[in-house]
Simulated assay, not measured.
Amino acid sequence: MSRDLALGAALLVVAFAACHLLGLREHVSVLSGTPPPAGGGDASLGAAYALAWFGAVVFAPILAIAAGMLAAVDRLRARRSAPSGPARPPG
């Protein structure tokens, strides 16, 4: 479960990096009603960049922290349930 959360956080960051490398940042100005400097902006590209940014900045850290906490709890549970040594017979 913690690996799934960590993978989700990584995918959000990779999606944002891909949008940034593709140059979608210029299209975000369309969302405020101003044309991008290069001209011919597409609102859907601006929305995609904004959603990727929010995913990377807001949700990815939450998922990463949750993955770390879940891994720590799983490790503590494994330590408590593991036998500490050879069992002695009663008596």
Rank of each mutant, 00 (worst) to 15 (best):
A10S: 15
G33R: 00
D74N: 13
L21M: 14
A72Q: 04
A17L: 15
A52G: 09
S81V: 07
P61S: 08
H20P: 02
T34K: 13
G68H: 07
L11T: 06
I65H: 03
R77V: 08
M1Q: 13
S29I: 03
A47M: 09
A18R: 13
P35Y: 07
L31I: 12
G41Q: 04
L21K: 12
R88H: 10
G23S: 08
A6K: 09
D4I: 05
F16V: 01
A43G: 00
L76E: 07
S81Y: 04
R3N: 14
G85E: 03
L5I: 01
D74K: 08
L12N: 06
S29Q: 14
A43S: 12
L63F: 05
A17C: 12
F54Q: 04
M1D: 15
R77T: 10
V57N: 01
A48P: 01
A9S: 13
A87P: 01
L5P: 04
A78I: 02
L51Q: 01
P89V: 08
P36N: 08
D4T: 05
L45A: 14
G33Q: 00
P90S: 06
L21V: 11
P35Q: 15
A64Y: 10
A66L: 14
V73F: 10
M69W: 10
D74S: 14
F59N: 02
L70G: 04
G46I: 05
L7M: 12
G55Q: 10
A60I: 07
G91V: 03
G40Q: 08
V30R: 11
G40F: 05
L22C: 14
L76C: 05
A64I: 00
A50F: 12
G23L: 09
S2Y: 13
L70T: 03
S84D: 07
P90N: 01
V14P: 02
L31G: 12
L45H: 09
A60L: 07
A48I: 03
L63N: 01
A9Y: 01
P83G: 06
H20N: 15
R88A: 13
V58M: 02
A66I: 04
E26C: 10
G8T: 10
F59R: 00
P86D: 02
R3Q: 14
A15D: 11
V73N: 08
G33C: 04
G40E: 01
F16K: 02
M1N: 12
L11E: 11
P90T: 03
R25S: 12
S29F: 07
Y49L: 09
A17N: 09
G39H: 13
A66S: 15
A52N: 06
M69T: 11
A82F: 00
A18Q: 10
S2H: 15
G41C: 05
G39F: 11
G55P: 06
A82S: 01
L31M: 13
A50L: 15
A64H: 06
G46N: 09
A48W: 05
V28I: 14
G55N: 07
P36D: 03
A82N: 03
R80F: 02
